[in-house]
Design a protein around this nucleic acid. Structure first.
Lengths: 130, 130
DNA sequence: TCAATAATAGTAACTATTCCTGAAAATGTA
DNA sequence: TACATTTTCAGGAATAGTTACTATTATTGA
């Protein structure tokens, strides 16, 4: 992975933006510093940076992919009305935590979604992974 | 909401398919019974049926939207390799449940994702919702 | 410095979904 | 049943987000 001006600026903008921007939103920011950059470059670099573990690609519902400059362990809260995403401290995953989450974020908490991630039996067989 | 042949077949196929198909996948199935149906009709009906609470639109990550004929309370487990989605019994959201989930589904559990859903402070202000 | 290779800008292509239009089907009323 | 009203339909165009392609440019190692 080479060190390019584009990559540097993309990472810098993502990290300092404490929100969880989409590629397009980040593109807008970066373009102010590098007017000739293309959207494809932003996508490619976000992909590379998350593959390297330098940033995090968020696995949230919604039509747009989002990225997070903070790779520390934490969960998210998403507004079902405007789609914005805020951070939660790690481990806040209990039913009675809803009130704490509401208090901490100012959100009206409607619910939470738990999705386990793993390798399904048929994929395990295919790749021989334990 | 009127009762049409198309709507009936779409619902019937979704409910009997115990997987969590995308609109496109369902379209393929339905087309075998109604060869002249269009993809737009499938999308429109899935939208209407979930608005009426008859089916459930899944809020999962991934590029395709998925639907579930089972509206009962349950969570899901998704394979990070092939993207397939299976059901979990409701309430299985504790760290030490990972082993139980693995045992129950045959998956290798890599982790779980908790996302709270709510209304953010700025949207609460706008709509006057408590 | 210079060759090898990775990254870039710009654009075309692609995928999933939504929107639009005129025609057809379902329903309510008589 | 006949007819008017309204919903839904098929088909296709349009859109949004993302990825792929290509010729050029920049970075790196020797």
């Amino acid at each position: 992975m080479r060190r390019t001006k584009q990559r540097e600026v993309i990472l810098d903008e993502l990290v300092k933006l404490r929100t969880h921007p989409s590629a397009d939103e980040l593109y807008g920011r970066v373009k102010k510093r590098l007017p000739r950059i293309s959207l494809g470059t932003v996508y490619r670099n976000l992909e590379i940076l998350s593959r390297e573990g330098i940033i995090r690609r968020l696995e949230t519902a919604g039509s747009q992919r989002r990225f997070d400059g903070d790779t520390g362990d934490h969960q998210h809260i998403r507004c079902v009305s405007c789609g914005c995403i805020d951070d939660l401290a790690a481990g806040a995953d209990r039913a009675r935590c809803d009130a704490l989450v509401a208090k901490g974020t100012g959100y009206r908490v409607l619910g939470r979604r738990v999705e386990y991630l793993g390798i399904c039996p048929s994929c395990r067989k295919k790749s021989g992974g334990s």
